[in-house]
């Protein structure tokens, strides 16, 4: 990774904290996550009603919560630059487009990791409540869940970043990102798949984000899922580079 990419990542990450928006988003995200976990929702009863020492409801909820959080993180990254005209300035610097894309991506990923770090309080609480004679919280699925959440968040961010690069309006970028992520999510839904012709089901299931997180909430990290997330990141970051690069020469 180049120094330029890291410098851009640092600048972008600091920029998030210069406005109250990041604080508000993260506060809402952590509040909603804790509320869903303890009060129940998304097919799970609340933690105290379940009386089971695991974090499955959290990891089941994250893919859906990310659908909203990620577009809010990525919407301004390119769209704002284009609207204010700083994109042209950025591209005149002696840096490669690749560095700019990776830098922005890393900054967004760092913010998402901060959001995930805020949910660690839930993990500590469950670990404390599970520490009774003869039992404890199984940390393997928890660790796997966080790794998978980071990978999934990375894939979502790459998609959001790409969408942000093709428009100059933040709101449009956010709405289109939510739409694309929802589409990728629901094309793996069994009910949706059942309505599709047979030949279309396998490709839809292969690129959907929905079936990916099921195993990890049980403590299974499938290398196909890891490969999927990495491929999504590579593809959409590359596409992002292509889009930005095309404007450089226009």
């Amino acid at each position: 990774m180049s120094r330029a990419a890291l410098a851009i990542a640092g600048r972008e990450f600091r920029a998030y904290w210069d406005s109250p928006i990041a604080y508000v988003f993260l506060a809402i995200f952590s509040g909603v996550t804790a509320s869903v976990f303890f009060d129940g929702g998304l097919g799970f009863p609340g933690f105290f009603a379940r009386q089971i020492a695991d974090l499955r409801p959290l990891f089941v909820a994250l893919p859906m919560l990310f659908l909203v959080l990620v577009p809010l993180i990525t919407m301004r990254l390119w769209a704002e630059e284009r609207r204010t005209g700083t994109e042209e300035l950025l591209l005149t610097f002696p840096i490669r487009v690749r560095d700019a894309v990776v830098g922005k991506f890393l900054a967004a990923w760092a913010l998402l990791s901060t959001a995930l770090a805020l949910t660690l309080l839930i993990t500590f609480t469950v670990a404390w409540l599970a520490s009774i004679p003869g039992s404890s919280l199984d940390l393997g699925p928890v660790l796997g869940g966080y790794v998978a959440a980071l990978l999934m968040g990375g894939a979502y961010l790459a998609i959001g970043l790409f969408v942000s690069a093709i428009t100059q309006h933040q709101i449009i970028a956010a709405v289109v990102s939510v739409f694309v992520l929802l589409l990728l999510f629901y094309i793996g839904d069994p009910e949706f798949l059942a309505a599709l012709p047979e030949w279309l089901r396998a490709p839809c299931e292969a690129i959907s984000t929905l079936p990916r997180f099921k195993g990890v909430s049980r403590g299974v990290l499938d290398l196909r899922d890891v490969a999927y997330y990495l491929s999504m990141m590579v593809v959409f970051l590359s596409a992002n580079g292509v889009v930005v690069d095309s404007r450089r020469w226009r």
Partner: peptide, 21 residues
């Protein structure tokens, strides 16, 4: 390429890690 790669991987890559203790 992403679609085809994931289709192939979903059918042929069969490796997973069980993280439960």
């Amino acid at each position: 390429i992403a679609v085809v790669a994931n289709l192939i991987l979903s059918r042929h890559l069969d490796a997973r890690v069980d993280l439960t203790d």
